[in-house]
Simulated assay, not measured.
Amino acid sequence: MFRASLMSLLAVAVLAGCSNTGGSSSAPASVADNDGRCQASGAEFAIGKQATPALVEQARKASGSQIAHALGPRDAMTMDYRSERLNLHTDAQGVVIRVNCG
């Protein structure tokens, strides 16, 4: 019993150390309790920015999605809807113009 309590306390302490209470990131914190489903509103900060791999990853985390990718105006895309996927649509210069789930 004591060992289980000690392990639980240790796990809480480790997780608390991983939390981000401030900082300089312009991306919002990830969406909580969404079971990996995309919430595009969390990634709207990316609109107007260059779609770099780092930005795609920030947007994925902020939307709570499991998968994210950037799509250019001439890129092929699947027509299947996946609730855990974030799409960052870009213009010809690679600037994000729209975000949506699917």
Rank of each mutant, 00 (worst) to 15 (best):
S25F: 05
Q93T: 15
A70R: 04
D33K: 00
L10E: 12
T21C: 04
G48W: 09
V95H: 08
Q58T: 01
A4P: 01
V96C: 06
C38K: 06
S41M: 01
C38M: 11
A51Y: 06
G72M: 09
L86A: 03
M77A: 10
Q58F: 01
G17S: 10
S19D: 09
G36H: 06
R60F: 09
T78M: 11
P28S: 03
E44H: 01
G36F: 06
F45Y: 07
S41A: 14
G17N: 06
G64V: 07
I97W: 00
L55D: 07
L86H: 07
G94D: 12
M1H: 04
S8N: 08
R60A: 08
L88R: 05
I67K: 04
G23M: 04
A43R: 00
A76P: 08
G72D: 10
A62S: 15
S26N: 03
Y81D: 12
S26Q: 03
G72S: 10
T52N: 03
C101V: 12
G48R: 01
A70H: 05
Y81K: 03
A46T: 06
H89P: 00
Q50D: 13
D91H: 05
Q58I: 00
R82Q: 15
N100Q: 10
A46Q: 02
L9S: 11
A32R: 06
V14E: 10
V95F: 11
A13K: 00
T21Q: 08
S8R: 08
T21I: 12
L55E: 08
R3Q: 14
F45C: 05
A46M: 01
A54K: 07
M77E: 14
S24F: 07
G72Q: 09
M7K: 07
E44A: 03
F2G: 04
E44T: 14
G64A: 05
A16W: 13
C18R: 04
A76S: 14
A4H: 09
T52M: 04
A29K: 07
E57K: 02
A16K: 00
G23I: 09
K61R: 12
Q66A: 11
T21W: 11
L86C: 05
L86I: 09
G42N: 07
G48D: 11
A16M: 14
G23Q: 06
L86V: 10
L55N: 04
T90I: 09
S30P: 15
F2L: 12
T78H: 10
A59R: 01
S63Q: 02
N87P: 02
R3G: 07
D80Y: 05
A11V: 15
I67E: 12
P53H: 01
S65D: 04
R98D: 15
A16D: 14
M1W: 06
L6Q: 13
V99K: 00
G102L: 04
V31F: 02
L10R: 03
T90N: 07
R85F: 06
E84S: 15
P28I: 09
I47F: 02
G102Q: 05
V14P: 08
E44M: 03
T21V: 13
V56A: 02
T78N: 13
A54F: 01
P28N: 02
G42S: 05
T52Y: 03
P73A: 06
G17H: 03
V56W: 02
D33A: 11
L55F: 04
